[in-house]
Amino acid sequence: MSEHAEHVPGLAHHFVSMEQQKEAGTVGMWVFLVTELMFFGGLFLVYTIFRSTYPLGFEYGSFLLNMPLGLTNTIVLILSSLTMAMGVHSAQTNKQGALQMYLIVTLLLCLVFLGIKTVEYRSKLHDHLFPAYTTYNPAIKEAEPNNHHAVPQALKSEVRTFLWIYFLMTGLHAFHMIVGAGMLVGLIWMARKGKFNDVYNSPIEIGGLYWHFVDIVWIFLFPLLYLSGYHLNVGH
């Protein structure tokens, strides 16, 4: 049983068959994603508790974020999920050129997302909205009634809590994007060497699972962070 298995390329020595290896890889990735869910879960718990404690602070805080940029990033990320899925499809149907193309497009979309995120972070820093003790100094609404970035005095501290949660959650998400970008570079490199085909493609598939998970996190982050105060904007 183990003898003929030795000759299959891509099969590690301690597995009996390709199927076993693939099943182990997929289940392993899913188990890892479950730990990721619990990891983000702690922050979602923090969000839930503080949102229900400081509802107005969260609305005003959300109002300070740049909704169009957040929306753009949502679309970019969902698009990248599609291209990743198409990459898996190309590998499964043994289309080498398409596989490389889709992986590269996914990587580019990832970089676009991170670029937009950087722009957002910089503007928060510029408006003194980064919530560290030394940097947080938002404009106060009573003093500057027409300032778009102004915060009511009574909510200053609550908005700060919101901004912390915003930076923690999006920062952790962006960290996962950066790890994903590194993973994509590796996959592109392997794909260029022609390692993947319709028999052996589990790295692409498992990498895809990770990528989609990062997308799912953002699907929740976008409405929770960017949209909870959006109606205040329309009132202007």
Binding site: S81, G208, H212, D215, S228, H231
Partner: peptide, 22 residues
Amino acid sequence: NVLIALTVACIKATLVILFFMH
């Protein structure tokens, strides 16, 4: 607002899990 946003997000996430993630 929250309920609607979360419901839609859950549906979206389910679609991604079921089909993109096979």
